[in-house]
């Protein structure tokens, strides 16, 4: 089985939000809503500052509470790559999944169902990278199969120091940030 994940090189990311804009147009994310976003994490005091910039989105967790808590099965693990998806036709909008996500990755779409990053599965199934990955002008995002030892994502993880966001929440996030 494939296990899709992302590896994002914070050394190259400039926080330009192209990934966010691309997600908007690709997926028609309505005005005022975001499936992905940028976190700037600055530590230290002037002029000795360390700044980590992260392009964040649903982590497509391996242990996804949002799926477990869903009463209808709308939130589910897709049969391809462990991607966590929401079936709009099954979602009743109870918002339990929103409350369950430590990353606040979900939101209520104006049409009533809960929405979030899909890892652009419609593109991935056509052999393309997710929209955010494919536009990034710094080429800092990598998408691929974490279970394939020869995938670029795996090579990067094996060769570079990395971390996930909030692993202590225990959801097993599948997006990794290279340091």
């Amino acid at each position: 089985m494939a296990r899709f994940g992302m590896v994002i090189d914070t050394k190259k990311c400039v926080g330009c939000m192209d990934c966010v804009v691309a997600c908007k147009t690709e997926n028609n994310v309505p005005e005022g809503f975001n499936r992905d976003w940028i976190v700037q994490d600055a530590r230290g005091s002037f002029p000795t500052v360390n700044l980590e910039i992260r392009s964040e989105r649903c982590n497509h967790c391996d242990n996804p509470p949002c799926v477990y808590c869903c009463p209808t099965g709308a939130s589910h693990i897709h049969n391809l790559g462990g991607v966590v998806l929401v079936d709009h036709e099954l979602c009743i909008g109870c918002k339990a999944c929103i409350a369950s996500c430590p990353y606040d990755a979900r939101f209520v779409h104006p049409e009533g169902y809960v929405d979030k990053c899909t890892f652009c599965i419609h593109r991935v199934e056509e052999g393309l990278d997710p929209a955010c990955v494919s536009v990034c002008p710094t080429y800092c995002m990598y998408f691929g199969d974490l279970e394939d030892p020869n995938s670029e994502v795996n090579k990067l993880l094996n060769s570079r120091k990395h971390h996930a966001v909030l692993p202590e929440a225990g959801t097993k996030p599948q997006i990794f940030y290279l340091e």
Partner: peptide, 15 residues
Amino acid sequence: MNEITNTRMNPGIDP
């Protein structure tokens, strides 16, 4: 010092 900015502003989620 630790300074975090987040560009996400989803209604019902943020701040």
